[in-house]
């Protein structure tokens, strides 16, 4: 120690003498910052690191860490486009893209469950039924959520999953298949349309708890729709008539899907021999 002439030369040692001897009976003096109002509410600023802020400024988004999810989310929006290519003002979901996607989902070992989010105004009968049939025949657990609307051909897609949810405010329109396109006014045309309608009715009643009579009654009810006969079911109403299993949003749907995925895993593992 004698080597050093003063405290300044001693690295790491700060010459500090406490004003009072520390003890249980001494209360330490509290020094407020002179410019700070002691009664003012203090805010603590926590923020993102500079790096993240820079990316937000430059590219408008932050880098999301890539975590592979074990569920696949299919969104079906707008018109379901089928055999006819619709004009560009329509927002469409293309069935020729969805169907191989469902094949890939079935095949992929990473995907363990499928969440289907619906906000559709209907579309092609054949394309809609094709998607619905593909969803039903998936071996992996599937859950659907109707947000906004799941009208017309959206109804069979919504009920095609193992379990279905509808948002409180979402609506589903059930109405008869109308005549459109080239219509020949002969009895066969009506018979043909009736058959098309039967396909939808049969699919829906087979995959949900609604009875055929009830579904047909909703379909042909008069006085509810301005331009058509039929019914609009909103949220709980769809659950009450047995079409949809439960009202709820994403959290409930994901919870249910995870539960079903766990069940499936346990079943596949089988009992230990």
């Amino acid at each position: 120690m004698s080597y050093y002439k003063s405290f300044n030369q001693v690295p790491g040692i700060f010459p500090y003498q406490p004003p009072a001897q520390p003890g249980p009976e001494t209360n330490p003096e509290h020094h407020e910052h002179p410019n700070q109002d002691p009664n003012a509410e203090r805010t603590r600023i926590t923020g993102k690191s500079k790096n993240t802020l820079d990316t937000v400024k430059e590219i408008g988004s932050t880098q999301v860490p890539e975590v592979k999810s074990n569920i696949h989310c299919l969104t079906i929006v707008g018109q379901i486009e089928g055999h006819l290519v619709l004009p560009p003002q329509n927002k469409t979901t293309k069935y020729e893209h969805l169907i191989p996607q469902l094949v890939a989902i079935e095949q992929s070992p990473e995907i363990e469950g499928v969440l289907i989010i619906l906000n559709t105004v209907g579309g092609d009968v054949e394309a809609g039924l094709a998607i619905a049939e593909m969803i039903t025949s998936l071996s992996k657990p599937t859950v659907s959520v109707v947000l906004g609307g799941g009208h017309s051909i959206g109804v069979p897609i919504a009920v095609a999953t193992d379990y279905s949810f509808i948002a409180e405010t979402a609506s589903m329109t059930i109405h008869p298949i109308r005549l459109n396109g080239l219509v020949i006014g002969v009895p066969q045309t009506y018979e043909y349309l009736d058959k098309m309608q039967d396909r939808v009715v049969r699919f829906v009643t087979h995959h949900s708890k609604i009875s055929q009579d009830k579904f047909r009654e909703l379909m042909f009810r008069t006085g509810e729709l301005a331009r058509d006969i039929g019914t609009v079911l909103i949220g709980q109403e769809a659950v009450d008539c047995g079409l949809i299993d439960e009202t709820g949003g994403i959290s409930k749907a994901l919870e249910k899907l995870n539960c079903m995925m766990d069940e499936r895993k346990h079943r596949n593992e089988g009992p230990l021999q």
């Binding site: 018109q79 619709l86 004009p87 209907g122 579309g123 054949e126 009208h151 459109n180 349309l193 039929g230």
Partner: peptide
């Protein structure tokens, strides 16, 4: 080809004849 939708067909199909796939 049957469209099953509550939307007005005229709205859905507007511009169908002007579509250019060339």
């Amino acid at each position: 080809m049957i469209l099953y939708t509550p939307m007005q067909l005229e709205l859905v199909l507007a511009g169908l004849d002007q579509m250019d796939h060339s």
